[in-house]
Amino acid sequence: MNFGEYLVDLAKIFVSSSIINNIVLIQFLGLCSYIGLSDSMSSSIGMSFAVIFVTVCSSILAWVIDHWILIPSNLQSVLQITSFILVIGSFVGLVQIYLRKTSPNLHKAMGIYLPLIATNCLILGVTFINSMNNYDLVQSIVEAIGASLGYAIALLLLVGIRERLRDSDVPTFFKGKAIAFMVSAIMALAFLGFQGMIR
């Protein structure tokens, strides 16, 4: 594969994870926070940034562990899950401590979402996807950016619609979380329009 093809390949990974196979709407990862946070514009923006940051960093860490430790020692199938979740958990903890000490403002903006992220299956999911597809480091980073951006896109679109629905006469039956799922259903339907764009 020459360099040009490689770049095209990266672009495909990016478009695929952010839009075509949107991590939330098509792959159903990160749903808890996606639905939970979608009634507040400000917290979804904060969460989006936090997720993008943590996903990218965790993917790098996970890749390093996968390729430098687990694969050489032939322990991938036994220790992968445990090591990935430990790495992500401790990374998030460290970031939280670091932010609190060094930049209180950033901590205020992002800090409250960090504990939520540790249990967000999106982050772990992306590391598994990278490993399953045997992505190299750059591909993993691109996948991580694409997937977390896809999360941000889906979340912000849902927030916009839910903000608008506050003024609507939504039936009691669907008030709250239920309508968020119904909106997501139609969003997923619309995203199907992109399906198959990349083999």
Binding site: L165, D167, D169, V170, I179, M182, V183, I186, A190
Partner: peptide, 18 residues
């Protein structure tokens, strides 16, 4: 499910067609 006329965030006919 979104409320009465004017509340639907998506075009209903297109939702049906999709």
């Amino acid at each position: 499910i979104f409320g009465s006329v004017g509340s639907n965030p998506f075009n209903p006919a297109l939702v049906g067609r999709a």
